[in-house]
Amino acid sequence: MNDPAPPLSIQWAAHLARDRRRSAHTVRAYRATAERLVAFLQGHWGEAASAAMLARVTAADLRAFLAARRAEGLGNASAARELSAVRGFLAFAAPQAAPPGLKGPRVRKGVPRPIAPEEVMALAGEVADDAAEPWIGARDWAVLLLLYGAGLRIGEAIALPARVLPLGPTLSVTGKRDKTRIVPLLPQVRDAIDAYAAQQPWVLAPHEPLFRGAKGGPLSPVMIRRAVRMARGRLGLGERTTPHALRHSFATHLLGRGADLRALQELLGHASLSSTQIYTAVDAAHLLDVYRNAHPHG
């Protein structure tokens, strides 16, 4: 007697790991999405979600699924990522079926420069998931977390030498005009860099760049900007969502939590306080925008 075939979600996870060479993190996340969809559809339809049934999924079915996920607190960017994973799963489970024509949720135009933390993580995850190799995904994830979690400029991040390893609680960064500053490293940022360093295939000589391109040379900022541009389009994020916007978000969110302007100036590596003071206006504009959208008489 033949053993029954594993569930489609497990088959898809195996395909992602074996054929698409996705990272273990991506495989787990996408399998979880597939399992959520199957469970929802079984309740929605009242019967098992076989491959034949998945071939008949409609845009209305997916809207109902996303509505259920949004009711659980899923934000726009995460909902767009969920829909992207669902499309991939349906294409695998029912390759002969036409994909449902459903656009992902979009962030309204004119979104303030600061990017919400949930959107930052969705963006970084989307960039990492789309990488050609797991180590490249780990690299891109680490770079983007450095921009948001430590407030680095993209040029400062990719110029870090390998001698910064092993990492400690702080990082020495050389910025504009060769000015050096010390920035704290959150545990999540350290873990991301360590994961990249463990996966990348090159010898990291102390004097050479920490972050490498696909062929082993220095990583170009163009590659990160391009990956972010493509990911923000898939997630429905605005054109202001750039690598530099992650640094702006770092500053604005710290200021909103009561950070001292002088301390923020040091963290950002600004030569003058006037450069840092723009964030007081940005933060005020962001709060006013939230008020106008949330208050019934705003």
Rank of each mutant, 00 (worst) to 15 (best):
V111Y: 15
D130M: 14
A162D: 05
E118Q: 14
P161E: 05
G110A: 02
I154R: 05
A116P: 11
A142S: 13
E118W: 12
I115Y: 03
E133T: 13
D130P: 07
R163H: 09
E126C: 12
G168R: 06
V127G: 02
L167R: 07
W141T: 06
R139W: 05
A142C: 09
G101D: 15
K103R: 15
A116N: 10
L145H: 14
L171R: 02
V143M: 02
P169G: 14
D140T: 12
L144S: 03
D129H: 10
I136P: 01
G155I: 01
A159P: 11
I182L: 15
T170Y: 05
R177F: 08
G104H: 07
E119M: 12
E133M: 13
A116M: 11
I158T: 04
G137N: 07
G155C: 04
G168S: 06
P112G: 11
L146I: 00
A150R: 08
K176Q: 12
P114F: 10
A122T: 09
W135T: 09
D178C: 12
L123K: 12
P161K: 07
V143P: 04
A132Y: 09
A128S: 12
G125C: 01
E126H: 12
K109P: 14
I158G: 01
P117D: 08
G137W: 09
R106Y: 06
K179S: 05
V107F: 03
